[in-house]
């Protein structure tokens, strides 16, 4: 209880997330990924280089960030939006503990809803528990962690976290990341692909960063965003009277 992870905060967060209708949306992207994989598996002959492309490009640039965005902004942003966060903050719990716990819950949920389906889809696509399946699974685990740190921070920074997160994913990562090589250094999607490719060594993944760069940048971004989010939450303000 006195550690950074707070069980009570985690329990409330999980119940809050699954108590909302938005929770049903979590299951849709991974379901699409598995259905697409099944369809391609049925349509394509074995041996073609499609598993890396579909599970890397589609899985890591669409499914992973969108699911992480929905979950990462749910674990804290929804409480800030409806004001119930005040009941949590009117206790002596450290703000860093609130942030780390919310982040951990978001990361684990994203792993369950993205990394595990990525692994299942990879097993369906390749038919073996090989390097590609392991690489995609570990890459998705890393992406779940880093994306959630970023989206939890966005929840504290702005009430429009989903819109800002979408802009980041769609404009920065999907457009700039493809055309401007420097943008990849600040792309969580590229960190995830870098980790996946570091294990899988599959050119179809289109990884733009090395494993080392991806790991170092991912760790820096995670730590910095969590520290910044904790500082901002400790300055959480309530609006006063209409003036």
């Amino acid at each position: 209880m006195s550690g950074v992870f707070n069980k009570v905060v985690a329990s409330i967060t999980v119940r809050a997330v699954f108590g909302r209708r938005r929770a049903l949306i979590f299951a849709i992207p991974p379901l699409i990924l598995i259905l697409v994989t099944l369809a391609l598996k049925a349509a394509r002959p074995p041996g073609a280089p499609w598993p890396g492309r579909i599970l890397g490009d589609f899985g890591f640039t669409v499914i992973l960030p969108l699911t992480a965005l929905i979950i990462g902004t749910s674990v804290l942003g929804a409480e800030i939006d409806d004001g119930s966060i005040v009941h949590l903050l009117a206790t002596p719990v450290r703000r860093s503990s609130v942030i780390v716990t919310k982040f951990a819950v978001g990361a684990v949920l994203t792993m369950a809803f993205v990394a595990v389906p990525e692994l299942i889809a990879a097993l369906i696509a390749t038919g073996t528990f090989g390097k590609l399946a392991i690489g995609l699974f570990v890459g998705a685990l890393a992406g779940s962690v880093i994306y959630n740190a970023v989206f939890v921070m966005l929840s504290v920074l702005t009430t429009r976290a989903i819109a800002v997160g979408l802009l980041y994913v769609l404009v920065w990562e999907a457009v700039l990341g493809n055309f401007v090589s420097g943008a990849r250094v600040l792309s969580v999607g590229q960190y995830s692909l870098g980790v996946a490719n570091g294990i899988a060594h599959d050119s179809a993944l289109h990884a733009g960063l090395t494993l080392t760069t991806a790991l170092i940048m991912g760790a820096i971004v995670t730590v910095l965003t969590l520290v910044f989010a904790s500082r901002r939450l400790s300055e959480f303000s309530l609006k006063g009277d209409a003036v």
Binding site: R15, A16, D82, G83, S84, V86, A90
Partner: peptide, 11 residues
């Protein structure tokens, strides 16, 4: 603190 806003963990 008892805040004015009627937002509690309704679940």
């Amino acid at each position: 603190l008892v805040p004015e806003r009627d937002s509690v963990y309704a679940f």
